[in-house]
Computed example of a mutant assay.
Amino acid sequence: MEVVPVKPLARYASLANYVELARSLGLDPIGMLRSAGLDPGGIRLQDRWIPAEAVVSLLEETAARSGRDDIGLRLAELRRLSHLGPLSLVLREESSMRNALAQLIRHERMYNEALHTSLQVADGVATVRIEIDLGVAAPDRQAVDLGVGVLHSLMRELAPPTWRPLSVSFSHAPHVDATLSGRMFGGLVRYDRDFDGVTFAETDLDTPLSAGDPQMLAYTQRMLADAAGNEASVARRTRQLVEMLLPTGRCSVDQVARSLGVDRRTVHRRLEAEGTTFTRVVDDTRAGLARHLVAGRRYSMTEIAVILGFSSPSNFSRWFRGRFDCTPREWRSAGR
């Protein structure tokens, strides 16, 4: 039987600020979303999965209709670390850029399956490269610009105020109007290179990360206010944090409580009030992710075991059988 490749998915979070940007350019974002086969109402559901190809196509069409070839950079300029939601809290706890990048790379598939980020170090120089893999040939210049721009912005937020990369590289030709790229990257941007990404000194990898910034503080305060003022939000926030923490090996009620700004007893009490427990939230979150990842065929069982926080593929397989009454491979073979 022929195996049909499963196309990568992305979350609506990858289009954060798109509606505002499109309107500022005189475009109809609702019509643009519909033309790309996306549900305009769903853009408010940041965790909803959509075809990554549709996101890339939307960005290219926006560039064509607006007559601007820097749509990806414009979106990236609007992004902040806090847009990563619970993952932003995880990154803030890392002691160095090396560890933060490792977490960012490990979690990328939880936001965009078409995005592939890698860290390479050689001769005292570190390079973080971005690649877009849709499984089919398609223009992706704007998606690449968005990926590189967001990466650069996040590194700037995490690093000390004096940090500067050695260069920011793009494999495509220069932007027609270099005003935005100049504002974002200064004189460090390089075009027509053989990769897309950010290059910096290897020693920067182990430089301690900077203290929290006002925007991150504001995000955390909103998160805590929501948790304090709405009992139902605790389970939702807990699920978000569990999803982000599973691959780190630090998914515990203590870690979740610390991220929420409460003690573990408060987490247990509020979850109990909603008729659930921390263990059940973890198990249900794993189950939802497992169904998506196993059916998707893009990741090996070993990779999925790591994503879901299992110590070994065999432990993952035993858990999966207990939850779904079949092995992961049987589930995948059945095309569920």
Score class of each variant (00 low, 15 high):
30 I>S: 05
74 R>T: 03
99 N>S: 09
91 L>Y: 04
234 V>W: 06
193 R>A: 13
29 P>Y: 01
173 A>R: 15
2 E>A: 11
91 L>C: 06
160 P>S: 11
166 L>Q: 13
211 A>T: 12
10 A>R: 12
221 Q>N: 11
162 T>N: 05
291 R>C: 13
43 I>K: 11
161 P>I: 07
294 V>N: 14
202 E>C: 05
330 E>P: 06
287 A>S: 07
42 G>E: 12
91 L>F: 03
48 R>A: 13
245 L>T: 00
127 T>V: 05
28 D>W: 06
74 R>Q: 09
124 G>V: 06
279 T>F: 01
245 L>R: 02
255 Q>E: 15
50 I>S: 04
17 N>K: 10
286 R>M: 10
147 G>I: 08
125 V>G: 08
80 R>V: 04
310 F>R: 01
11 R>I: 13
152 H>C: 06
184 M>A: 11
321 R>A: 15
6 V>S: 14
265 R>C: 07
28 D>V: 06
213 D>A: 15
181 S>K: 06
204 D>K: 07
54 A>S: 14
257 A>Y: 01
269 R>N: 00
81 L>E: 14
112 N>Q: 07
254 D>P: 02
245 L>F: 01
230 N>G: 02
249 G>F: 04
152 H>P: 02
163 W>E: 00
257 A>C: 01
91 L>K: 00
256 V>Q: 02
93 E>S: 11
155 M>S: 01
97 M>T: 04
317 S>E: 15
142 Q>Y: 10
319 W>R: 13
276 T>R: 04
161 P>A: 15
235 A>P: 01
107 H>P: 00
84 L>P: 00
56 V>C: 08
275 G>T: 00
140 D>T: 06
63 A>Y: 12
116 H>N: 06
122 A>H: 13
150 V>S: 10
308 L>D: 10
179 T>K: 01
287 A>P: 04
265 R>W: 00
62 T>S: 10
136 V>H: 05
38 L>E: 10
280 R>K: 13
299 Y>R: 09
211 A>K: 02
167 S>G: 02
218 A>H: 02
211 A>S: 13
238 T>H: 04
41 G>W: 13
271 L>G: 00
89 L>W: 07
262 V>L: 04
88 S>N: 00
123 D>S: 12
330 E>A: 14
313 P>H: 12
294 V>Y: 10
13 A>F: 02
265 R>V: 15
138 A>P: 12
204 D>M: 09
221 Q>Y: 00
31 G>C: 03
15 L>T: 14
184 M>Q: 11
149 G>D: 07
245 L>S: 05
304 I>S: 12
266 T>I: 01
121 V>P: 14
76 A>H: 04
304 I>L: 14
103 Q>M: 15
46 Q>C: 03
235 A>N: 01
24 S>Q: 12
112 N>A: 09
320 F>T: 13
215 Q>T: 08
99 N>A: 13
113 E>P: 02
314 S>D: 15
122 A>G: 08
274 E>I: 05
307 I>S: 14
308 L>A: 08
125 V>S: 06
294 V>R: 03
166 L>E: 15
